[in-house]
Design a protein around this nucleic acid. Sequence first.
DNA 1: AGCATTTCTTTACATATGTAAATGCGCAGC
DNA 2: GCTGCGCATTTACATATGTAAAGAAATGCT
Lengths: 190, 190
Amino acid sequence: MENLIKFFNSTVPLSEKVISLMAGMFVYDELKKGAYFVKTGEYATEIAFLETGIVRAFYVNNEGKEYNKTFFSAPSIIGSYASLISKQKNNVAQQALTDCKIWKASFHEIEKVSEGNFEIERLRRMIAENYFLSNEKKELEMAMLDADKRYLIMQEEYPGIELRIPQYHIASYLGISPTQLSRIRKNRSL
Amino acid sequence: MENLIKFFNSTVPLSEKVISLMAGMFVYDELKKGAYFVKTGEYATEIAFLETGIVRAFYVNNEGKEYNKTFFSAPSIIGSYASLISKQKNNVAQQALTDCKIWKASFHEIEKVSEGNFEIERLRRMIAENYFLSNEKKELEMAMLDADKRYLIMQEEYPGIELRIPQYHIASYLGISPTQLSRIRKNRSL
DNA sequence: AGCATTTCTTTACATATGTAAATGCGCAGC
DNA sequence: GCTGCGCATTTACATATGTAAAGAAATGCT
């Protein structure tokens, strides 16, 4: 729980009051490797703080192929943010790639306590902005850089992740086939 | 100016007080076709309401090729949102594709008046969320759908835009070459 | 109206990357 | 220590899409 507070505080400093409010909203839980935190086609209701572990967000195209959109590496917030704020169904599933420790909360409750609470409203604004920025960053990278460079950036962004999850998840994240990732790795090491 | 108020009100209803606050912050201006509202490498300071016209947001890769990231078709908000909230340099330029009428404001001033103003804070949160959602939507479309389908969606999202801007801008938006767009259009009409 | 410029389409060709399948490697469990 | 299974790499091949260039069409300017 201290980790959660610390994590939020690194976005905006929070008052004692807000901290104790939040403390009541989050409960501890675990995700086994392979378990889903969010499933496609459902309405998201929960958000969680990922204390340890790795989660992937991925979508499936009409041919049934999976694409990894994001990795969440602790400490981080998980939950289908898009579905929560739009009240639409998820298009993106979230699945644990390792065993995970999480603290989850009902998003609806968070919305309720932020009614009229300036501080939480501001926290939510900053969270929205951060999501926006990291999406934007990934989008630009995907579009401007070749897979080579994206691979490099991925390694900086998620240090050590390659040791913890299979290569084909990385390939999917980079938007290329495992075959192609292999070719890149081969060239890299020449 | 009424259009501006109407536009913001369609996100969250605003009080008289906030409306008059805003009225003082936005001033009328125009952009000639081809003019830039935002240039790459600079720090954004302004935001604007696009009352009439079309603006494109685009980035340039290291080979000097341009990619259109978004079209803004009035009524809409323009300005390098990412740069404004991150206080980093722009990676994305914004250029008028037709003559435009705009109402611009200093983002810094907006930030100042939202200090402690719950309503504006909430407006900003919702704007951030909307930006996030439209980015997310585009990202999923780009990744899950082929250019065919994206072309269709583009036509729904920006009705009539094809009559107002050159084809190669559309191609660039779809992430394909003009040649390829031509091929798609040809197949479409069979 | 006529010329010039811009835009769109088409062709021919090159190539990057995906798919499929075979091989190789390493770790886990017995 | 052996066996099997999951994962990574490699090979061969197919193909979608980009590039370049030429031609056609449209637009705009004087």
